[in-house]
């Protein structure tokens, strides 16, 4: 930070990013040929347009881009006592990243399995949570969008939204009560005689998966609902009339149509699950090692912000790359999912 080069990079980068995005937008407009639409300035008037642009740019730069770049910069530095900062020891280094891989900044003989495992487990479980969430939400969203009468729909929406008035931590604890060894579910199963001894849902991570799935339900339901709702019901009937069984209609008519919604729902749920902190802390079993608490510990237990930054960036980049790959695989473009 003290280094003038660093400072220059830090201040120039947000501007570069802004210009880059503007160029991307310009290119997309040229390729898509959206010339007839009035420009942003034409639509809003010069004064309002300027204000909006400055306000959004300010917000994006100072609230998102700038702190992030700060973190990037941090992650390439060593943790040093204040007296030695800016001194000859304060150089760019990959130490923090090596620490994630090898568990040491100097000795590269053994791997940091604890962290690496937690990391991949977080990614893998987030994928599972996303898929489970999709499997749960797709039928619900389809029902809401294409089948339900308006009255029924209102009730359903209410039932979906009202539980989210309760805050996240409380909801996590409620799941603990539900899934604990002496919890409601175990009691019911015992009373029904289905099991003879309580099941350790929390130790088995069942509670965590359920909690995570439930936590981001709405973020999956609404993009799906929006996408499916805009599908003309006649198309479903046309497919049926042409002889399609129901699964074929969903797979080849509804889902391709709803792809942008599916992509945005899955992206949101995946990103947020991978970055969730409260649910893993509360609902994770004693043996569970989620990655976000590790990052948290780097910051507040080890007081090593540099290392914490590196960990956070590893998680962020992996998630972004993973999402991009998935989007490439399913042929969804960025502009589609923001529709």
């Amino acid at each position: 930070m003290s280094n003038p080069v660093t400072a220059a990079v830090l201040f120039a980068a947000p501007i570069l990013v802004a210009v880059l995005f503007w160029l991307l937008g310009w290119r997309e407009r040229r390729v898509a040929g959206d010339a007839a639409a009035p420009s942003f300035v034409e639509r809003n008037g010069r004064l309002v347009a300027t204000y909006l642009f400055v306000a959004v740019a300010f917000w994006a730069l100072f609230m998102i881009v700038w702190p992030l770049l700060y973190m990037v910069d941090y992650s390439f530095h060593r943790k040093l006592p204040p007296s030695r900062r800016g001194g000859p020891d304060d150089v760019y280094t990959l130490e923090n990243y090596w620490y994630f891989v090898y568990g040491s900044t100097r000795v590269f003989t053994s791997y940091n399995w604890v962290h690496i495992n937690a990391f991949w487990q977080t990614i893998a479980v987030s994928v599972v949570v996303t898929v489970a969430n999709f499997a749960l939400c797709y039928p619900l969203a389809y029902y809401m969008a294409q089948v339900a009468r308006p009255g029924r729909l209102r009730v359903l929406l209410l039932l979906l939204i009202v539980p989210y008035w309760v805050n996240e931590i409380l909801r996590a604890f409620a799941f603990m009560v539900l899934f604990g060894t002496g919890g409601t579910i175990n009691k019911i199963l015992l009373a029904l005689g289905l099991i003879s001894a309580p099941i350790d849902f929390i130790g088995q991570n069942v509670a965590l998966y359920a909690g995570l799935t439930y936590a981001y339900l709405l973020l999956m339901v609404f993009p799906l609902y929006n996408a499916i709702e805009s599908l003309d019901h006649n198309q479903i009937e046309a497919a049926r009339d042409l002889g399609a069984p129901w699964w074929h209609i969903h797979l080849f008519v509804v889902m391709p149509f709803a792809k942008p919604g599916i992509a945005s729902g899955c992206t949101l749920v995946f990103m947020l699950s991978a970055g969730a902190l409260a649910a893993p802390l509360v609902l994770g079993g004693p043996k569970t090692l989620w990655f976000t608490p590790i990052v948290y510990d780097r910051f507040y237990q080890a007081f090593n912000w540099q290392q914490g930054s590196a960990y956070a960036i590893i998680l962020l980049l992996t998630c972004v790359v993973f999402v991009m790959l998935m989007m490439r695989l399913f042929k969804v473009s960025l502009s589609e999912i923001t529709r």
């Binding site: 006649n234 009937e237 046309a238 049926r240 009339d241 042409l242 391709p256 149509f257």
Partner: peptide
């Protein structure tokens, strides 16, 4: 007999072609 098993084909008032 369900619609997908009938020997009929329906052309909808708005055609309902698959846009994708």
């Amino acid at each position: 007999i369900e619609p997908n098993k009938r020997p009929t084909a329906l052309i909808f008032q708005n055609l309902a072609l698959f846009p994708l």
